[in-house]
């Protein structure tokens, strides 16, 4: 990867996506941040420029293919290529037991987490395969490979993200393009606060983590930066747990 890699990040306005933008900016990347809310997006791009990075905001709703196509095409128009993409747009949907789920709650989660990841990869790969290089990092979850009481649809959507990741890795490898995912455990974000609700529930979750705390968004971002980098040049189709050991037990 060049000294100033071009990195495109979806879901960049909050949480892990936002931390990834900052982490890549520190490493000298040129960055396109994307999300649905224009004022926040423009403010983030300005913040990244303040860190010395070349940065743009391009609005996109990853559930809409026209938006995603436009995002990718405008990124290429602005910076000439895409070296790495982080697909961080995601939602916890409407947590609750299986018996309460509906076609609507399913769609609310799957449209962003699964369709959004699929459409993002479709257009990123269009560019990267033509370039014959590039690295895609999807954001899964430890719930992408284990069950989650009260979060079945979210867990199912992240299982789907892992299936998409491995399959895309197989398809893209012949072009020299790598596709991996980071699977965060509980991470200090707005999503975690919405998921857990109470301090007690958050404390109970922390007890399941060998390192004894929840992760910080920057710690997940650093794993994404690694997967995007040349240090991971022989790593593809992999799901990297960044979870303080939660998956191990």
């Amino acid at each position: 990867m060049s000294n100033n890699p071009v990195v495109m990040i979806t879901g960049a306005l909050t949480g892990i996506g936002r931390a990834a933008a900052a982490a890549f900016a520190k490493d000298g990347a040129h960055i396109v941040v994307s999300g649905r809310r224009e004022p926040e997006g423009k403010a983030l791009a300005a913040e990244l420029r303040g860190m010395g990075a070349e940065a743009e905001f391009i609005a996109a709703d990853v559930r809409r293919e026209d938006d995603v196509r436009n995002l990718v095409d405008r990124t290429v128009a602005r910076f000439g290529r895409i070296d790495a993409a982080v697909n961080a747009a995601g939602t916890e949907g409407q947590p609750g037991p299986v018996i309460d789920q509906t076609a609507e709650s399913f769609a609310a989660t799957f449209d962003t987490n699964v369709l959004g990841t699929l459409l993002s990869m479709k257009h990123e790969l269009r560019v990267m395969q033509a370039q014959a290089h590039g690295s895609i990092v999807n954001i899964s979850s430890t719930y992408g490979h284990e069950g989650a009481r009260g979060a079945s649809v979210y867990a199912a959507s992240k299982h789907a993200v892992e299936g998409l990741t491995k399959s895309a890795a197989l398809e893209a490898a012949s072009s020299g393009v790598r596709v991996n995912a980071v699977a965060p455990g509980p991470t200090e974000t707005g999503m975690l606060a919405r998921f857990t609700g109470t301090a007690e529930r958050k404390a109970a979750l922390t007890k399941t983590v060998p390192l004894g705390r929840v992760g910080q968004p920057d710690e997940i971002a650093r794993a994404a930066v690694f997967l995007a980098s040349d240090q991971a040049s022989f790593v593809t189709g992999q799901i990297l747990n960044a979870d303080g050991g939660k998956s191990a037990g």
């Binding site: 490898a173 390192l211 997940i220 790593v235 189709g237 992999q238 990297l240 979870d243 050991g245 191990a248």
Partner: peptide
Amino acid sequence: SEDARWITGDTIHVDGGSKL
């Protein structure tokens, strides 16, 4: 490195995408 400070208990497969 410090960049991996939140990663533990994991096996990273450095295998060019084998047996996916």
